[in-house]
């Protein structure tokens, strides 16, 4: 059963890793991905909106799909919402398995699916004062479909 969280607060990679590994000796591989807010084009902040209820449901389904495809001993997905400034972490995907291939592939899969199948929207606020909604990218759809 994956750990799924949608929260405004930052997450702690070490603490999340410990949650997956404490008391276990069957884990041979841990893979993690952290998405970070970049300061492209004078970006002041990113505001993450989501669909409460559907978001958790969608992340649960994506994690269940990963657990069905790879022999994972643990899986964590934490996505932050609200206002995030450049340098802030946005998303954490953490996978544990006996061997590296499963952990690495599941981690990449979770990110690719999360980007196209979970109801989050990013609004970029720029230092110059204007703001815009981020548009979905065809590359992200292609990445999700390759699995």
């Amino acid at each position: 059963m994956a750990r799924i969280a949608v929260q405004e607060a930052p997450f702690d990679l070490a603490a999340e890793t410990a949650r997956l590994t404490d008391g276990r000796t069957d884990i041979g591989a841990l893979a993690s991905f952290i998405g970070v807010c970049r300061a492209d084009d004078g970006l002041a902040a990113m505001v993450l909106e989501h669909y409460p209820g559907m978001t958790e449901r969608a992340l649960d389904k994506i994690a269940a799909e990963a657990e069905g495809r790879w022999p994972l001993t643990g899986c964590t997905v934490i996505h932050r919402v609200g206002r995030l400034e450049p340098g802030a972490s946005i998303v954490l995907v953490l996978t544990a398995s006996a061997h590296r291939q499963a952990a690495l592939e599941a981690c990449a899969f979770l990110m690719d699916w999360l980007k196209t199948k979970a109801p989050f929207w990013k609004r970029e606020e720029f230092r110059a004062g204007h703001a815009r909604w981020v548009e979905a990218r065809a590359e992200d759809d292609a990445a999700a479909q390759k699995w």
Partner: peptide, 23 residues
């Protein structure tokens, strides 16, 4: 997630939004 041709009923919660951009 739903398609344009999917049926809707009076008891449903239906949401409309742009393509998602999380991650």
């Amino acid at each position: 997630f739903a398609h344009l041709a999917d049926p809707v009923a009076d008891r449903d919660e239906v949401a409309f939004f742009p393509p998602v951009t999380g991650g």
